[in-house]
């Protein structure tokens, strides 16, 4: 009976779920890519010798990691327009400001976590590596680029993959501001069919398949990297 309903939901409303999943993935990919660039910058600031930059980065990271994503999202979507900051409408992308608010909130949030991933990845490299490079006459930036970063990448990439998986799951909160992600579509089908349990079951399975797939991909890449080093 349960699985019959599930099957009916999949055949009849499958495209709702897949469209939702597609949007979830778009948001997660953009957020992690943007978060990685911003996070790298933030990590550099956090490790900077310039004290104000370091403070700024530390404050940012602590704030975004110490407040709920939901609050950050609401702040950007409802709060910012009240002080005159809003995203422009774009004719060929429906609901662009809404979508942007979700992506920006997820990116800014992800940035804080990625910054810490990158910082700890770099700091986990034995300081002796940097010293040896400097003792040969390499400048700091060069030593960073050819000696430290290639080693830090091995620490950073797997953690970055985990961050992506986390963002896929966390992104379900954007449904509360009406972005048509997987969670939002699930609620839609639920409201239409009253098959609450079955709908949530389908959503959970879709989320799980996605995150499981990416987790496996990450551990495969991790093994490959460990192998190359030999």
């Amino acid at each position: 009976m349960f699985f019959e309903t599930v099957w009916k939901l999949i055949t009849r409303y499958g495209h709702f779920f897949t469209e939702g999943l597609r949007n979830t993935l778009i948001i997660a990919v953009v957020a992690v890519v943007a978060g990685t660039f911003l996070g790298a910058l933030m990590a550099l600031m956090r490790m900077s010798k310039v004290t104000p930059l370091r403070w700024l980065a530390t404050a940012y990271i602590e704030f975004f990691r110490g407040t709920p994503l939901m609050v950050q999202l609401m702040f950007i979507f409802y709060g910012l327009p009240m002080i005159g900051v809003s995203f422009p409408e774009i004719s060929f992308i429906p609901d662009f400001p809404r979508f942007m608010a979700g992506i920006v909130a997820m990116s800014l949030n992800s940035c804080a976590y990625v910054a810490e991933v990158i910082r700890s990845g770099i700091q986990a490299v034995d300081p002796g590596q940097m010293e040896a490079a400097r003792s040969l006459g390499f400048r700091k930036g060069e030593a960073m680029r050819i000696v430290v970063l290639p080693q830090a990448i091995r620490n950073i990439l797997p953690a970055l993959g985990n961050e992506f998986v986390t963002v896929i799951k966390e992104s379900s909160v954007v449904s509360v501001i009406g972005i048509a992600d997987l969670m939002y579509r699930t609620n839609g089908v639920k409201a239409k069919t009253y098959n609450t349990l079955e709908c949530l079951f389908v959503a959970a399975i879709l989320y799980f398949i996605t995150t499981f797939f990416f987790s496996k991909l990450i551990s495969f890449a991790e093994r490959r990297m460990a192998h190359e080093r030999k």
Binding site: D126, Q129, E131, A132, R134, L136
Partner: peptide, 15 residues
């Protein structure tokens, strides 16, 4: 530093 070679206790070869 290019003219001053240094050898460390922990070797510090680039891994």
């Amino acid at each position: 530093r290019q003219k001053m070679g240094m050898v460390f206790q922990q070797f510090n070869l680039f891994n």
